[in-house]
């Protein structure tokens, strides 16, 4: 089971705002069959975002939700050319991690997401994703750092 595939990497994300960016990233999950209902999932993400914006210092946005529309834990990685405001105080986000978890996902699945969340705090991990030349490299970095 993979957390991310090359289809779930959008290196030239072109979106005006959070909602649009999230929708585009989530669309990749619909295409791959990991998300059964785009509207439901987007609604769950929006609710989480409304509780408090998930933007973090250092140009990071981590929209995320547990949703009944999600079939397996998934990560979608987006790298917008121009930053998207994600509610962080120090400016727009240039690295976006959309984290999708199934409702009531098993412990093993959740542990992978937990490991991913921990990695996001590492500057070298983020930098390597910023520097990745293509989708395959992004997938390879995530697989190496998180899944194993």
């Amino acid at each position: 089971m993979s957390l991310i595939t090359t289809d779930q990497v959008v290196l030239d994300l072109d979106a005006a705002d959070r909602t649009e960016a999230t929708r585009q990233l989530a669309q990749t999950l619909v295409t791959s069959g990991r998300c059964t209902d785009l509207a439901t999932f987007l609604d769950d993400v929006r609710k989480r975002e409304e509780q408090m914006a998930t933007g973090l210092p250092g140009g990071i946005g981590i929209p995320h939700a547990r949703s009944a529309a999600i079939t397996q834990p998934s990560l979608v990685f987006g790298r917008p050319a121009t930053g998207v405001d994600w509610g962080a105080e120090d400016g727009p986000a240039t690295l976006i991690f959309l984290i999708a978890a199934p409702d009531g996902g098993g412990q093993e699945h959740m542990k992978i997401l937990a490991a991913l969340a921990r990695k996001l705090m590492r500057a070298e991990f983020r930098q390597s994703l910023r520097d990745a030349p293509d989708a395959a490299t992004v997938v390879e970095i995530v697989e190496r750092e998180v899944v194993n």
Binding site: T54, H64, A101, A114, A117, R118, M121, R122
Partner: peptide, 17 residues
Amino acid sequence: CPTGIAHTYMAAEALEV
């Protein structure tokens, strides 16, 4: 954190580091 999939672990990592 409320969702329990992201901030909980990021905060733990940040503190430990």
